[in-house]
Design a protein around this nucleic acid. Sequence first.
DNA 1: GTGAAAGCGCTAACAC
DNA 2: GTGTTAGCGCTTTCAC
Lengths: 332, 332
Amino acid sequence: MADVAKLAGVSAMTVSRALRQDGSVSDRTRARVLEVIDEVGYVPDQAAGALSSGRSGLVAVIMPTFTVPPFAQIARGLHDTLSAEGLELFMSFSDYSPEREEQVLRAVLRRRPEALAIVGVDHTDRATKLLEAAGIPVIECLERAGQGVDHVVAIDQAAAGQAAVRHLASRGRRRVAVAASRQDPDAGEADRIAGVTTAARELGLDQPIVIRHGSPLAPLDQGLRAAGEALDRHPDVDALVCMNDYAAVGVVGELRRRGRSAPADLAVVGFGDSDISRHVEPAITTIGFNPVLVGVEMGKMVLSTRAAARLGRTLPSYRLNIDFQLIVRESA
Amino acid sequence: MADVAKLAGVSAMTVSRALRQDGSVSDRTRARVLEVIDEVGYVPDQAAGALSSGRSGLVAVIMPTFTVPPFAQIARGLHDTLSAEGLELFMSFSDYSPEREEQVLRAVLRRRPEALAIVGVDHTDRATKLLEAAGIPVIECLERAGQGVDHVVAIDQAAAGQAAVRHLASRGRRRVAVAASRQDPDAGEADRIAGVTTAARELGLDQPIVIRHGSPLAPLDQGLRAAGEALDRHPDVDALVCMNDYAAVGVVGELRRRGRSAPADLAVVGFGDSDISRHVEPAITTIGFNPVLVGVEMGKMVLSTRAAARLGRTLPSYRLNIDFQLIVRESA
DNA sequence: GTGAAAGCGCTAACAC
DNA sequence: GTGTTAGCGCTTTCAC
């Protein structure tokens, strides 16, 4: 930057201002500075800027994984909302593990993000402490009805599970199973399962069976194995509620492979209304919500807390519930 | 950090060293320092560290999108390989646009990454200049046979297109179409199309038709529309080569919806061997390669150039071709 | 509208 | 094994 300043015949300070559309540089000076910058190929060092200004320009995102499309879509919504304001995303995986989440949280805080967007894992106690101590807005996307650390975009999983069961009951299904992942359920799973169980009891259905198989990182495979177990070991089960649409696709695939079909032999309900659910046969009945929208809403929360902070205020913790609706297709 | 130093009764330098497993701190001192750190909840500021040491600990990743699973899987492979060495990923989208890529490249270089991993877009001239001027290793994943800026992990798309056509010809197909995206084809698409055309000519087939529809960001939809056009306007087409498995899933879905089927009415070939291709009906015949492996190989290249740089050497540009194989399933 | 001085929080380099 | 000094490349603050 010193080089640029010298070549343009101004001070470093003026270069810095010219770079930031700071009103207080004359158009002529700014033009000259930008010209020199372009000539010498100068690229400012944001680490230096961040250190000096205290603003990193970063929003940290922590998600279980990016390889499952709905998560990537949330990131996409966040990205589109925040990049308009010059904020960049710093993304990390937690792999559905609270311990790993704590670890990446530590790493992330070293980068001094201006806000934190976290999706879908319960926090360890130490992680919660870190979050509180960080002194930055924390926006969580929680898949449960419970309390978050600060601001929350919530998907009411229990209600979603209940909606699925009500629909299944109305179609005459009596014995519902839930296809969950093998590892300890995260909060979202637990809540959805609770919703299914509650609804089944209220409607006088048989007690739901929970089938645990595979990793949430490989949902298609998880669905395939759950379908196998349901058919082999629980022949009376007539409906299967899955944790996402990809798992549901795995289920209907396995049914077909075994000469069975949905919904004739087993009604199948997915979650998320991923585009895949419309394109397979049978099309998947699912709980629809828009993951991009979830990201956008999280992004808006980041921006509003930031705007408030600029005015020296703190926004009270805010909670937004994302609507979902049952989308009835062919599989149930 | 000064606080920690004072409380532990040592200098800031010792705290810094204790934090980095730098051998040169006695175990007793390090233990005391770490204890204080834990007590006061100190989190080092990596921007300051980066500024001072010249090492940002960042590897920048630029991809067309993360919402298409194979890209997310490449990122995953990169992540797993690099995090073992303490490097973190800074990810950005280019949306398949060279202009946007140049823009995010600028933004990314401000963060002073130690290496750059770029997937699948042609660069603008200015972007190429920026890359060369950056003075850091650039690892590209190119979907073409051409030259990259520096190190390259290549997927030989032309050969893949040829393999697909040879298979189709061996099954008696004569008139092949390619389902591409609406926008200007990126290099990978162009090469695959060229491969298809070349193979068709060599094998004495009819001249392939290129059907352009939709965005590569929504491959299922793109496939659906391509199938519609093939059926409506090119009834003699008996095989459709798609740019990825999701597009192929869209194609078979549309066929079914119209009372047609693959491969009876139209043979369909995908690309990428995504897990979805095994789980739909008919299962998708596809060109298999492992995106996670692509990421791992890119990560290894980053590490080896880094290791070389530590020894004061520069690695000559290296090129790795990722194997692919035709995986014959039901759709063709 | 522009410049000068000071300092953000670390680490390299060298001294002890 | 530990401390001291200097400085990374910006931005803040205040002066003009």
